[in-house]
Amino acid sequence: MNNNKDLSIKIVDPSAVNLAYYQEIKQYSDYFWNLSNLGEPALDHKINMFLTKEARLLDQQCFDEWLTLFLEDGCYWIPGSMPAASPASEVTYEFHDIRRLKDRIVRLQTGFAYSQIPVSKTNRILGAPEVWAVPGSSEGFLVRTSFIVFESRDGKSQVLSGWYGYVIIKDNDELKIKMKQINLNDCLSPQGNNSFFL
């Protein structure tokens, strides 16, 4: 352990987060509470398969590959309230840009993250995802789906439930996650060891 007297932090992957960014993602978040204004939801096979893959990558702990599903200015967000307050003015359970999401993954990969020794085994069951176009956007889609995550670790298990609110961006034929919002039904209640990914 060095004392870092001559500390020089090299910043990797600069953060895209500023007040305008928070405004944008809060707007996406608010759409999920006014879905009847957005017309009939659609089913989208590609998006369905994309989310199924995302769930599998997390269940298989393929975190590096999972991270490639996000846009460079994407975010992973577990609000502490429902509907979600703006992360600019209230704390969340987790709100990561890609840089801090990588920090979180690398931390788990060091082999010293005792909250994940042994590692959590998870299975997540998604409901059928409903898809709406982001108003005024040709490439952005709002996706809402219920989830149940069953987690087992060290002979104990827990069930987490709620719904995911995604913003998925279609760039030509490729899909990327701009926002993954994890809305826990019991976000007002004390949480257990959620050191895996939801």
Binding site: M1, N4, Y114
Partner: peptide, 19 residues
């Protein structure tokens, strides 16, 4: 794990002075 990640990604920082 937090200290090692901080070293790997940023060359140090955070609460490493507790070392």
């Amino acid at each position: 794990s937090l200290l090692q990640m901080t070293t790997l990604r940023y060359g140090g920082g955070d609460i490493q002075y507790f070392g």
